[in-house]
């Protein structure tokens, strides 16, 4: 009798469970996919919630209100997802404004390929030092041919090293006078050779006539929003010297617009360039020279629940999109999952 009951139950469950599970899965996959599209195609409410640092959206959406094409995201809304930004939206605020209580999500936005810099050698000369860098552009270990624009920033010094063509790996020499104070920062902006809208970037800080540079964010908090860079020093005895905006085709020194309550604002120029804008601030902390940097939009960005770490979620689906921000292309992945059934 026991054997009979056992075999009957096993057969029934094995026959019924997969169809039930799959039908729930298909339904969830379609529903979550529509939610992911909604986030990227909807501007949210108010439509310009990204620009105003004090505004928390009533409805969550990342689309650019002025964009003619779908899947074009607002530079400020994306920047407000970054933990580096002073006015970052918390996950709780995103979750509440999405108004779909039975889903958890994660949003990641990053360049379509990566750029890496390594300092491979240093040659001391008379009155100058030459640094040899290896710059690699790749995606999943495969080389990406690209055009590279290089800038070097140091104390009262900005040098445009021009455009270099790379098949994926290139060695470049950077020579800096010993009269220039450090540390220094090498900024690399890369554009895929096959499509100028596919971009990537990296900034590499290195010692020059100085001790090793501190970690990013040690001296300043840099928050770009609404084409204004807000700089908040982390120590009282910090003074700023120069602030630069660097894109693939343009470099400019930023003008201070306001200064209040330990925060200083600079206007970021609206450049018609399919490129992220790397913002570099230099200054002194007591007697120590420093360089800090960020990028506008503040990417790569990752916000939300990590699907691999959450134990309360059931099936989690990943949806991948190509999105445009300031007419450059990026990869956006939205993970959405629901509670256990």
């Amino acid at each position: 009798m026991v054997l009979l009951v056992l075999s009957a139950m096993t057969t029934t469950s094995s026959l019924l469970y997969p169809p039930i599970s799959n039908s729930f899965g298909d339904e969830a996959f379609t529903r979550y996919g529509e939610i992911a599209k909604y986030i990227l195609l909807n501007t949210g409410k108010p439509v310009d919630w990204g620009k105003n640092s004090q505004t928390v959206p009533e409805d969550f959406g990342l689309a650019d209100a002025d964009a003619a094409d779908p899947y074009t995201l607002d530079v400020d809304k994306v920047s407000r997802l970054s933990g580096e930004n002073l006015h970052v939206l918390s996950y709780a605020q995103i979750y509440t404004s999405l108004k779909i209580p039975d889903v958890s999500l994660r949003i990641e936005i990053k360049p379509l390929f990566e750029t890496f810099v390594n300092l491979t050698a240093t040659y001391e000369g008379e009155g100058e030092t030459t640094y040899e860098f290896e710059v690699e552009t790749m995606r999943s270990g495969v080389s990406v041919p690209a055009e590279l624009r290089l800038y070097v920033v140091a104390e009262n010094w900005l040098q445009n090293l021009g455009v270099h063509s790379s098949d994926g790996k290139i060695c470049l020499n950077v020579t800096i006078s010993k009269d220039v104070g450090g540390p220094a920062l090498l900024v690399v902006l890369a554009k895929s050779r096959c499509n100028a809208k596919i971009v990537s970037f990296v900034a590499y800080a290195f010692a020059h006539n100085s001790q090793n540079p501190e970690a990013k964010g040690s001296f300043l908090k840099l928050s770009p929003l609404n084409h204004t860079l807000t700089v908040v020093p982390k120590n009282v005895d910090t003074t700023l010297t120069d602030v630069y905006a660097l894109t693939f085709n343009y470099a400019s020194t930023l003008e201070q617009t306001t200064s209040q309550n330990q925060s200083i604002a600079f206007a970021i120029p609206r450049l018609l360039d399919s490129s992220p804008t790397v913002l570099v601030a230099t200054g002194w902390n007591s007697t120590r020279f420093f360089i800090e940097w960020t990028v506008y939009p503040q990417i790569p960005v990752a916000v939300g629940i990590s699907p691999s770490e959450s134990v309360s979620l059931a099936d989690v689906y990943a949806y991948t999109f190509t999105v445009a921000i300031n007419s450059a292309f990026y990869r956006c992945t939205v993970w959405i999952g629901g509670p256990k059934q």
Binding site: F29, P307, S308, V311, A314, V316, A318, T320, F321, T322
Partner: peptide, 20 residues
């Protein structure tokens, strides 16, 4: 639990890429 599934909706991914 922990069933992370990559998007199998390739047609949608392809169409979105061509449109962009």
């Amino acid at each position: 639990e922990h069933k992370t599934v990559e998007s199998s909706d390739l047609a949608s991914v392809g169409l979105q890429t061509l449109t962009k």
